[in-house]
Design a protein around this nucleic acid. Structure first.
Lengths: 248, 248
DNA sequence: CGATACATTGAACTATTTCAATAGGGGTGG
DNA sequence: CCACCCCTATTGAAATAGTTCAATGTATCG
């Protein structure tokens, strides 16, 4: 069942995500839930925030897959981050007011809107909750840095392995993995746009990872065959995802 | 003269940086200044924060050049961001408690330390100032995203041009440019580690930009010859640096 | 059934890396 | 003060990862 506004389950994934990193009191959870304005569904391939557009609300992703991206003049696109359920996809817009990038739905998505004035009230009245929201944006920055390392230093196979490892961890936090498998609603072209390679090369790289018995991505589903091997060639260290509980 | 603790000028660059984006009251400036614990100088090539080390203070860079970086097993290094005077180099550590990356001085640097408990007090008592600090970390994320686009989609010449454009804007905000020139204490190898290319290729790319009459980098000084041309090949759009004043 | 989107493969091409050699500049010890 | 060393910059030539263009295959859907 898809949760409606006001229902506890609306912020279920967000709470899972937050509670991996710190305690969230029942009252804080209530405040988060009540700050949601509207819940709706957007179809796949919809850009929900366009770069430099003025924002007055932020979007919490409840289900589906979204991405942050920037397009260049020649038509090439770089995806800067994949967003999954429980992610605040444009929380950066709360302080920026105008985002430097666009955000689009890669699959059909369920989203909730949180008006900026309610976020602002949280910053006025709830220091701990404010730090948790701040943390969410800092996690995005940490993910950006790990991608930066991938794009700058790793081979296409290692980059791809890294991405599959990252998503495996992030999706398992919000309980969207089935052991070593998970749905990932990406085309090979989208994948290429994450990794800074061409779609043709993404295809060949996928084949190489499959042939090496590490991972298989077919029909929008990732099946990790050899997790240790995949992490090994990715040089994957989940530290950057900050999976430990600390008082923030 | 190098500013000492408590002196107004200690946070001069930080204030320049903040006031480009929003108003900072005299009282807020005072609070920032008083939250500084210690001011000291660190020699070049000093790693001041090591990845995953527990942090209880954050570092404000007063002068000199620092970088955030990650090293890989094979010895390669990716620099994720260059930090200049006025930057809080490890503010991410305030919410993370343990950074995912290291921070080092590329030149001799003057730094100030701000204990986390004072930052925490700011989040308890000063919502607006908190949002400004939050904004600083969001700016880092925006810079990461622009580098991501560079590494993923741009040629080495465009990447390099982009970096020189970014630094030109950021340094002019804190009044460290001399019109179209600025000091940049990087070796070609450091530069290569920012751009995800080899030092040899950085050398050839520098030569190409020089030969095209766009920019010259020699003796640790950048001289932009043709700013419009440089921005053109970089496809540089300073929007991501958020140079407009908006109430945050 | 035809249209459309996505995936797969081959072959030629290009940007960048790698390895190797050379050169200059600044500092240090003898 | 010279000789030497280390670090940084420069250049050439061969090797390689990834791109580009183009053709083919495959699944889905009205």
């Amino acid at each position: 069942m898809i949760p409606a506004v006001g229902e506890v389950r609306v912020i279920e994934k967000l709470l899972l995500k937050l509670r991996v990193r710190d305690e969230v009191s029942a009252e804080e959870a209530r405040i988060l839930r009540e700050s949601i304005d509207e819940v709706r569904t957007v179809p796949a391939d919809t850009t929900i925030v366009r770069a430099s557009q003025h924002l007055s609300a932020s979007t919490l992703l409840l289900g589906g897959l979204m991405c942050r991206y920037k397009d260049l003049r020649d038509g090439s696109r770089q995806i800067a981050e994949l967003q999954i359920a429980g992610d605040f996809v444009d929380l950066h817009g709360f302080t920026l007011k105008r985002l430097d990038h666009s955000v689009m739905a890669l699959s059909e998505c369920r989203i909730a809107t949180v008006p900026h004035d309610r976020l602002r009230r949280i910053t006025e009245e709830r220091p701990h909750l404010t730090r948790l929201l701040w943390l969410l944006t800092i996690l995005d920055a940490a993910i950006h840095r790990e991608w930066l390392v991938s794009l700058g230093q790793r081979s296409s196979a290692a980059r791809m392995a890294n991405l599959f490892c990252e998503l495996h961890v992030r999706l398992s936090v919000v309980e969207l993995t089935d052991d070593l498998e998970y749905d990932l609603d990406l085309t090979q072209e989208d994948l290429a746009n994450c990794l800074g390679i061409t779609a043709v090369h993404a295809n060949r790289t996928l084949k190489a990872l499959r042939d090496r018995g590490l991972v298989d991505f077919h029909n929008r589903r990732v099946r990790i065959i050899d997790l240790a091997g995949l992490r090994e060639i990715a040089e994957f260290d989940p530290t950057y995802l900050q999976l430990n509980r600390e008082p923030r």
